[in-house]
Design a binder for these strands. Sequence first.
RNA 1: GGUUCCGUAGCUCAGUUGGAUAGAGCAACUGCCUUCUAAGCAGUAGGUCUUUGGUUCGAAUCCAAACGGAAUCACCA
Length: 604
Amino acid sequence: MGHIKSNCFIMLSVQKQLIEALKNGLFSLFEIQSNDLVLQETKKEFEGTYTFVVFPYTKQAGLAPAAIAEKLGQYVKENYAGIKKFQVVQGFLNFSFSDEVWIEALHKIVQGSQKISLDKKGEKILIEYSSPNTNKPLHLGHLRNNFLGFSVAKILDAAGYEVIKTNLVNDRGIHICKSMLAYQLKGQGETPAISGMKGDHLVGKYYVAFDQLYKEEIAELTQQGIDLEKAKKEAPILLKAQDMLLAWENGDPEVMKLWETMNTWVFAGFEKSYAQMGVSFDKIYRESNTYLLGKKLVDEGLKEGVFYQKEDQSVWINLEEEGLDEKLVLRKDGTSVYITQDMGTAQLKFEDFGAKKSIYVVGNEQDYHFEVLFHILKKLNKPYSHGNFHLSYGMVDLPTGKMKSREGTVVDADDLMAEMVQTAKERTMELGKTDGFTEEASNELYQQLGMGALKYFLLKVDPKKRMMFNPLESIDFQGNTGPFIQYTYARICSITRKARELGIDLRDAHANGIELTVTEVDLIYILGQYKSIIESAAEAFSPSLIAMYAYDVAKQFNKLYNELNILKEEDENKRNIRLTLADITGKTIQHAFSLLGIVSPNKM
RNA sequence: GGUUCCGUAGCUCAGUUGGAUAGAGCAACUGCCUUCUAAGCAGUAGGUCUUUGGUUCGAAUCCAAACGGAAUCACCA
């Protein structure tokens, strides 16, 4: 199994003492000096918490592995009071701790639960996520992006950073003009109000319409005997779109007016989607505002000799030393490209917030782009150029392959979220869980469960990896899912609610001389890891670590719930220990889920 | 073609500096609700960790090659 996190706060002193004892044992028994002793978690099928592997010492000790383990175990048990027993299996030496150690650990967890978040680091960190285009509605890929970005922001906040959430809206460029042009041609004054469509969907409709018109024209041209490649470049509607982009850059009043109108529609639509997703931003940037600043940076770089101009006036940077190519940073006609805008945005964000660390939550298809961007910022010697990180997440694949908006193979974000809430409603009603709920409370619960299932589904997978979504199979509500963990939380709430009704005060829980079961010890052990899990998740920018942890916690608690009585336990001390465990388990789940942006209902 | 990433159960995924009989969930099959919420628990079955070589006490993990898949290498964003 895995190695022990060196920063597992709760068990830290216990681990240190054990390692110290092992070190001393190795020296006094075998005269082996070793400074890097590593413990491992004992595998489930064996008794114990920590395992020490002695295979590496067989040569030096001149004994068989089992013999070394036996002697070492004996030594440690005699010299460290916290050890209850040790067992030797081949070259593996397994240690179990006394119940006192575990009770003490539980007390520390209870004390620490007053403030679960880690200490402030006094450091600002920017996170940019979402980054939609204003020519079409959001899809499944955006959901992964938004949930990831929001969750990572929460995790970093919990890890002590001052987090600033930004969203860079891509609201300019040829693709935006395409939907505008199609609207001009076919729109006939349609508005979201008239059509009853959400603004982003309405605009998206015209983006698709453009593509149809474009394809028709290409077909026509090729029938006239024109080469396909040529037809693609010279279709009249495409040329018109290009003209429109020029008109936009020149501030043509009519084009600007249409652009602003359609933007307003899209933003109104996005706002609804973001509200449903439960994500938010501290500041929204628009590329239409940042691309000009990017051009300024190009001028600076030219003066400093970082960039150079070719004969046709286009501006370039040479990144061959970095193992990359020459890259264009400004077109020959002086208009900016993608990277120019990103340079401008980076500068603007730094001027606004002064953060030297910055995370970009963007799909891995743009790995190369960000590599280039970060190199450019370094060459420009920007103060924020060394804290950039591209959180490159994998695509969400469908069984049919990659999603493509133009081919109609996208899973729409709004549709999917609505479906999830509907499924949650059906499942909940089948189980009769909302009997006695008000309608308002029921609907709130369906929201929480549907979104919980969806968010957990997308966040439990390692962000870096591509993942599969099959629209024909609904997302589960059982097993390793959001609702399972939410259910465990609601179950715990039910217990603590009843405990309060019975007037049980946990503060006077005394636990002297209590015998714990393996299940209780395992739960205490898992609960003690939470803070170090937060730290790992923050370091790796990985909500999936939090998700998997929450699942482990819930699973272990349900095991305990089925094996042991809690409220009905007659021994008051045992009952109180279990109640304390239940309470801390609930708090841990709730906190972990809040880091994923998932609400934990206290009744379901 | 260059670069980067990936290949683990029928399906979706874990597996953190190399460690014990490779783990979960779903799907399938067995049990458990007059007792704290059965969206739960316990169990059965399911694997040549793509293949082949190497490194060593020991490899899903490290190295090399082959096979299969993906992304990217735009004066698109």
